[in-house]
């Protein structure tokens, strides 16, 4: 027990012993120094004049942006439709790709621990480490600007995310149910369809809806790098400093995100 005996021989209770206390203190000190240095770096690269001026600029932008240019909404129908499609179809393609990868990655279903599993884990980590905007940037430079690039970008980014959650669900299944199907003499695929799939189906549906919700958010900004959707309008409005259009677009995005979250919450509630 961390306690020590003081000069007059009485025990003094402490949460930590002396070395622990020193270490704890040193860690906090180190963290504070790192934070201070980092902050100074940011500060060096900041034109503080602009920052002091920020409230006025913010008020200025706010003044120009309001009220939103409502009639511009007629031009947003197609971009919103594209955004929805990028998110929905992107999630769909990602799930199609993620299922085999997840089965390859899960300890209990992988065909080979030496080859398939590491490969699947590599795909998972590399696709999910890179933000969908970067994937979009890459795909725009490969297949050219447009909705197609956005769709592929969203798909790729979602593969790792879905496959990771799915393979964790596969690893958590009840093995005795699988064993029971195997004991009836079912083939490998039958064991899969009767023993494993029913157990992971709820997780699968949950992941699909969860990722769809995220993809709605992400696909709204893909247009900033030319990958289609409502972000394109945002980018062009920003370029010409058309603030009333910007505020309308932001409002539309906000509504889309809220609807997306509402729908996904409803669907998840219905499944579970």
């Amino acid at each position: 027990m961390p306690s020590k005996i003081n000069s007059s021989g009485q025990k003094v209770w402490q949460v930590r012993d002396r070395n622990g206390q020193l270490l704890n203190w040193a860690l906090w000190m180190g963290a504070a120094i790192i934070f201070y240095i980092s902050w100074m770096k940011i500060s060096d690269q900041t034109t503080w004049f602009f920052v002091y001026d920020a409230p006025r600029i913010a008020a200025d932008i706010g003044g120009r942006a309001l009220p939103p240019k409502w009639e511009y909404i007629t031009k947003l129908g197609k971009p919103i439709w594209d955004t929805l499609n990028i998110a929905t179809l992107g999630t769909m393609f990602a799930l199609i790709m993620a299922v085999p990868i997840a089965f390859m990655a899960a300890q209990n279903t992988t065909p080979s621990k030496l080859f398939a599993r590491p490969l699947a884990l590599l795909i998972i980590v590399s696709t999910r480490s890179v933000n969908s905007l970067i994937w979009a940037l890459l795909l725009v430079s490969i297949v050219g600007p447009g909705v197609f690039a956005g769709l592929i970008a969203i798909s790729i980014r979602s593969i790792g995310f879905c496959a990771k959650l799915l393979y964790e669900a596969i690893e958590e299944i009840d093995e005795t149910q699988v064993e029971a199907i195997r004991a009836t003499g079912g083939s490998g695929w039958q064991v899969m369809v009767y023993g494993i799939v029913p157990q992971i189906l709820p997780a699968f549906a949950g992941i699909a809806v969860f990722r769809w919700d995220i993809n709605i958010r992400e696909s709204t900004v893909l247009g900033l790098v030319g990958a289609g959707g409502i972000g394109l309008q945002l980018q062009s409005s920003l370029n010409i400093l058309a603030w009333p259009q910007v505020s309308l677009i932001l409002a539309v995005i906000l509504v889309a995100v809220v609807i997306g979250e509402f729908v996904s919450a409803k669907v998840r509630g219905a499944i579970i």
């Binding site: 940011i42 690269q45 900041t46 602009f50 920052v51 920020a54 600029i57 932008i61």
Partner: peptide
């Protein structure tokens, strides 16, 4: 960025 200018801030 529009309000505070370019940079890490």
């Amino acid at each position: 960025v529009a309000i505070f200018g370019f940079g890490p801030l």
